[in-house]
């Protein structure tokens, strides 16, 4: 059993997805079978292998330090669910 219901709850919390009990039940079952499926990799000894960082053979491209973007407040805020001219608005953050 690679993952139990409590762990699924914890992962759901980390993922910010609320799960009711019936969802938790069925999802846990699926996650167990997926994790069992990927267990296959443990048959392989990879101690000497360096992890892949990119499939393409090039270094990171860079750009010049010039200002050519921004000043599009209307576009930025246009799709926000709670309309406001200047800000994104979210329910109160409790610290």
């Amino acid at each position: 059993m690679p993952i139990d219901k409590n762990q699924v709850k914890k992962v759901a919390k980390l993922s910010r997805i609320s799960l009711d009990d019936s969802k938790l039940e069925s999802l846990s079952k699926d996650l167990v079978s997926i994790l069992n499926f990927v267990e296959e990799l443990n048959k392989l000894d990879t101690n000497e292998i360096k992890p892949l960082t990119s499939v393409i053979d090039k270094s990171l491209d860079t750009r010049d330090d010039t200002v050519s973007d921004g000043q599009i407040k209307d576009q930025i805020l246009k799709n926000s669910p709670e309309k406001n001219e200047d800000f994104f608005i979210v329910p109160k953050v409790v610290d």
Partner: peptide, 21 residues
């Protein structure tokens, strides 16, 4: 400009004006 975008880093501007997609 910013680390990964070309919008300005200027301080004290009107809210959400120095923002790119």
């Amino acid at each position: 400009s910013k680390l990964f975008s070309s919008s300005s880093t200027k301080f004290g501007e009107k809210p959400n004006t120095q923002v790119s997609l």
